[in-house]
Write a protein that binds this DNA or RNA. Structure first.
Lengths: 210, 210
DNA sequence: AATAAAATAGACTGATCGGTCTGTTTTTGA
DNA sequence: TCAAAAACAGACCGATCAGTCTATTTTATT
C-alpha cells in the first residue's frame, strides 16, 4: 500500500498527544514536541498558533477516538446491546495495551490545570458529556430499567479503568473493569426489549434469570 | 480548647497539598506556596530542602489520611465486614465534599510526571500498594470467595470515584461508587464467616440470598 | 535584659519556558 | 523552468522558574 506521508499537523498532533500523556503537559516543552515531530519551530505557530491551541487539537483527536468507537466500531458488532456495552471494555483493553498509552489526555489535563480554569474544564467537560451521552444511548438500547444510574456506574468504572491502567501500566485493568461492569449489569433489572424477546411476559427480567 | 499554632512544616504542607491538587504540581510555583502558607522563602528550603521533597512530604500526609481511615476509623465501626467495606465510600464522600478537594495527589502526580520516572511512580506506587493491601484485608475479613479479584474491582471503583469527583466536582461520585461496589459485592459469593453464622449450612451464600 | 537561633523580606542567579524573528532551503504549481 | 509559498535551522526575547544569599527582625533561652 501507499506510504502516505504525514502532514505537519499530523506529526505535531501525534508527538504532542504522546508527550502530553507520557510526560505531562506542563513538563513538555514545545522544543521537545518539535524534536519528536521532526518539525520546525515556526511551523507549530503557523499551524496552531500556540501550545494551548495544540493541546485543544489533541483534545479533538482523543475525542474522535471515542466517537469512532461509539459511532463506527460498536454499531458494526452483531451482538446484543448488552454485549455491545461489554465490548467497549475490549476496546479499552486494546487501547491500554498500546505501547504509547499513558493515560487519558482529558483526565490528565484536568489533573494538572487550575481546577476552576474556564477553558480546560469546559472543553474536557464538554467532550466528556458527549462521550457519556453515547454511553447512555448504548445503555438505553439495552433496555435497562434505570439507564441514568447504570450510565453513571459504567462511566465511573471506565474512568477507574483508565486511571488504574495508567498508574499500574497494565492493560488488565480493562478486564477487571469488564468483570465489574458485568456485575452492575447483572444487578440491573432489564425491561424486555421491543425487538427481541417479544413473546416473554411483561414482568421485568431479574438478575436471577440472567 | 487551646488554639494550637501551626508549625512552619504544617503550614507548608497544607498550602502545598492544596495547591498541588488545585492548580497542578508543575503549575504551582514555590512563591505561590509561600504566599498561601505565609512563610518565608528560605524556610521552605531549611525545612524541606527542595520543592520535590515538599511533594514527597505531601505524599506522606495523603497516605496517612488513607491509613487513618483503614487503621482507625473503619475498625471502630460496629458493623459487619461487608458494611465496613461500604463505609469506606462514605468516608470518600466526606472527602470529596470538602471545599478544598481537587483530586488525589498520587493520581495527579503520576498524571503529570514522566511515566517512566523512577521516583514518582515508585513512591506513589508503593503507597498505593499499602492502601490496596489494607483494602484486601477488609475484603478477606468479609469472607469473599475470590478476595484478590474483589479487591481489584473495588480498588478500580475507588479510583474511578476519585477521578469522577475531580472532573465533575461532585461528591455524588462516592454514592454512585458505593452502589457499584454493592453490585460487585452482591455478585461475589461469600464463604461463611468463622465467627458469625456458624449454624448455617456449608453451602456458599449466593447473591440470591443476600 | 542579653544573647543565640530561627524566621523574615526580598534581591539575585542561571536555566528554561513559550513565542518571535531572520535568513536560507525545499517544495509546489503554472 | 522559474517564481511564489512553505518549511527549515536557529538566534533571540521577556517572563518565570527553583533555588541561593544577605541583611534585618522576631523568638526563645538563660
Amino acid at each position: 500500500m501507499k506510504e502516505a506521508r504525514k502532514s505537519i499537523e499530523e506529526k505535531l498532533l501525534l508527538a504532542a498527544r504522546r508527550l502530553f500523556c507520557r510526560a505531562g503537559i506542563h513538563a513538555t516543552g514545545v522544543t521537545r514536541i518539535l524534536e519528536e515531530a521532526g518539525v520546525a519551530r515556526a511551523s507549530l505557530y503557523t499551524h496552531y498558533g500556540s501550545k494551548e491551541n495544540l493541546l485543544k487539537a489533541v483534545f479533538d483527536t482523543e475525542a474522535n477516538m471515542w466517537f469512532h468507537w461509539f459511532d463506527l466500531d460498536l454499531p458494526h458488532l452483531k451482538c446484543s446491546p448488552r454485549e455491545r456495552i461489554l465490548a467497549l471494555f475490549d476496546l479499552l483493553e486494546k487501547w491500554f495495551a498500546k505501547e504509547d498509552f499513558f493515560g487519558c489526555v482529558f483526565i490528565n489535563a484536568v489533573a494538572e490545570h487550575e481546577k476552576d480554569s474556564r477553558w480546560v474544564k469546559d472543553i474536557a467537560g464538554a467532550y466528556r458529556d458527549q462521550i457519556i451521552d453515547r454511553l447512555r444511548s448504548l445503555v438505553v438500547e439495552s433496555g435497562a430499567r434505570d439507564p441514568d444510574m447504570l450510565t453513571q456506574k459504567l462511566g465511573l468504572i471506565i474512568e477507574g479503568a483508565i486511571v488504574t491502567a495508567m498508574v499500574t501500566q497494565n492493560s488488565q485493568a480493562a478486564y477487571i473493569a469488564r468483570l465489574a461492569a458485568e456485575d452492575v449489569l447483572r444487578c440491573m433489572e432489564y425491561a424486555p426489549s421491543p425487538t427481541e424477546n417479544s413473546a416473554s411476559s411483561a414482568a421485568p427480567v431479574t438478575m436471577e434469570s440472567i
